[in-house]
Amino acid sequence: MRIVVALGGNALQRRGEPMTVEGQRHNVALACIPLAPVAERHELVISHGNGPQVGLLALQAAAYDDVSIYPFDVLGAQTEGMIGYLIEQELGNLVPQDKRLATLLTMTLVDAADPAFSNPTKFVGPVYTAEQAEKLAEQRGWAFRADGDKQRRVVPSPIPRRIVEVEAVEALLDRGYVVVCAGGGGIPTMYSPGTTTLVGVEAVIDKDRASAVLATDLGADLLVIATDVDGVYLDWGTPQQRRVVAAHPDALDPGLFPAGSMGPKVEAAADFARASGRTAVIGSLEQLSSILAGDGGTRISVQTEGMETR
Rank of each mutant, 00 (worst) to 15 (best):
I3R: 01
G9Q: 01
Q13Y: 08
G16Q: 05
E17V: 04
P18Y: 03
P18I: 01
N27K: 04
A29Y: 00
A29M: 07
A31K: 01
P34A: 06
L35G: 00
P37N: 06
H42V: 05
E43P: 02
E43A: 13
L44Q: 02
V45E: 09
I46F: 08
L57K: 02
L59H: 13
Q60T: 13
D65L: 05
D66T: 12
I69V: 14
Y70V: 15
D73H: 14
L75K: 10
G76E: 05
Q78C: 14
I83C: 05
L86C: 05
L91H: 00
L91G: 00
G92F: 00
P96D: 03
P96Y: 01
D98G: 05
K99I: 10
K99D: 03
L101H: 07
T108A: 13
A113G: 08
A113S: 13
F117S: 06
F117N: 05
F123M: 04
P126T: 07
Y128T: 02
T129E: 04
E131C: 04
A133Y: 08
L136H: 11
R140K: 13
G141M: 09
W142E: 08
F144H: 05
A146T: 10
V154K: 03
S157L: 11
P160E: 02
R161D: 00
V166W: 11
V166F: 12
A168H: 06
V169S: 08
E170Q: 14
L172H: 04
L173Q: 04
L173F: 12
D174K: 12
D174W: 03
R175C: 04
Y177P: 05
V178Q: 09
V180F: 05
G184L: 08
G186A: 04
P188E: 08
T189Y: 14
M190D: 00
Y191R: 13
Y191M: 11
T195C: 11
T196S: 14
T197H: 10
L198I: 11
V201H: 01
V201T: 11
V201C: 12
E202L: 09
I205P: 09
R209W: 13
R209P: 00
A210P: 02
A210W: 03
S211D: 05
A212D: 06
V213W: 02
L214H: 08
L218T: 12
G219E: 15
G219Y: 15
L223S: 03
V224C: 07
D230K: 12
Y233W: 13
T238L: 04
P239T: 07
R242A: 15
V245D: 09
A247W: 03
P249M: 11
D250I: 01
L252S: 05
L252T: 07
P258A: 06
G260R: 00
S261D: 03
M262A: 03
M262P: 01
A268C: 13
A268I: 15
A269Q: 10
A270N: 08
R274Q: 12
R274L: 15
R274F: 14
R274P: 08
A275N: 15
A275K: 15
G277D: 13
G277K: 14
G277T: 11
A280T: 09
A280L: 10
E286K: 03
E286D: 15
S289K: 14
S290L: 14
D295S: 15
G296F: 10
T298H: 11
T298G: 09
I300N: 14
S301Q: 06
V302N: 06
Q303V: 04
